[in-house]
Design a protein around this nucleic acid. Sequence first.
DNA 1: CCACGATTATACGTACACGAACAAACTCAT
DNA 2: ATGAGTTTGTTCGTGTACGTATAATCGTGG
Lengths: 152, 152
Amino acid sequence: MSAVSSVGPTPSDALDGYVLDIQVGYLLRRAHQRATSVFLEGMAPDALTPTQFATLVKLAELGPMSQNHLGRTIAMDPATSQGVVRRLVEQGLIHRAADTTDRRRAVLSLTEEGRGVIERCRKRGLGISAKILSPLQPAEREVFVRLLKQLV
Amino acid sequence: MSAVSSVGPTPSDALDGYVLDIQVGYLLRRAHQRATSVFLEGMAPDALTPTQFATLVKLAELGPMSQNHLGRTIAMDPATSQGVVRRLVEQGLIHRAADTTDRRRAVLSLTEEGRGVIERCRKRGLGISAKILSPLQPAEREVFVRLLKQLV
DNA sequence: CCACGATTATACGTACACGAACAAACTCAT
DNA sequence: ATGAGTTTGTTCGTGTACGTATAATCGTGG
């Protein structure tokens, strides 16, 4: 029976040194929330999510490939890839074709419309990145991105 | 299996300078994924998610309060708070009581079991934070956390 | 006192993220 | 060439996250 109740003004007997607001996981969650929010606001004209845009960009970078392969290049679970690709196909930005040599695979490629969306959104993407980093001093931004890359 | 041995010139005509892998939003998504994964692995004995743990910790820090208020202190949408708190109540870690002076509110507090979980998990939480930051040099870790805090 | 606006909590829909289970198809070793 | 093991894509369940809508309640100005 641990009598937990300290009479004093500290309700955090059980914590003892654990301060949530400086834990890196908590801060990453908050920063990711804000980055997503800035992205959605900036991409509102095309109604693209960060993951959807990343999928299109990677497909443009690397050319046609299978769904799972594409997903792996941007750290998407196969189950997640399925939903993301399905929505992009429904929007007409990605084309699905059967692979002639491997009947399990679906070969994905950009449609003309998908290519157009990327061109329109490229500049906006750079603006969004700048806005996310805007609370930092210019010199700090490069440091932060360098460290963040090491963390992934 | 290797990178695309460029069948054509550049498949990324539409990109022109937009490299996904150095966009801060994309890196934050990846880092958050990894942080979540490390957390879930480290907290496996108690099966707590990062958000659930944050909720318990904040409740210990600040004492009993309403559901929306608690949610706001850790950047949760009211809709999100509802689900997180419901699951914690189902696990017996949080107690819900009607507010006597405001019948809209539900006053949340930690149960004895909830307090025990926090005590057990405190040290593990610190270990998890260290593990997330482990790819960085010790000096870099403080810099990173400082910059990350400014981004939130 | 009462109508109006704000707040609290809930419900529904959408979207990522992942574990688990599955069928179909492929590869490879024996 | 057959069987074992792997890969591809899907489906289901859980959890976070958010917009929108709604009902109940509270506070305040007139």
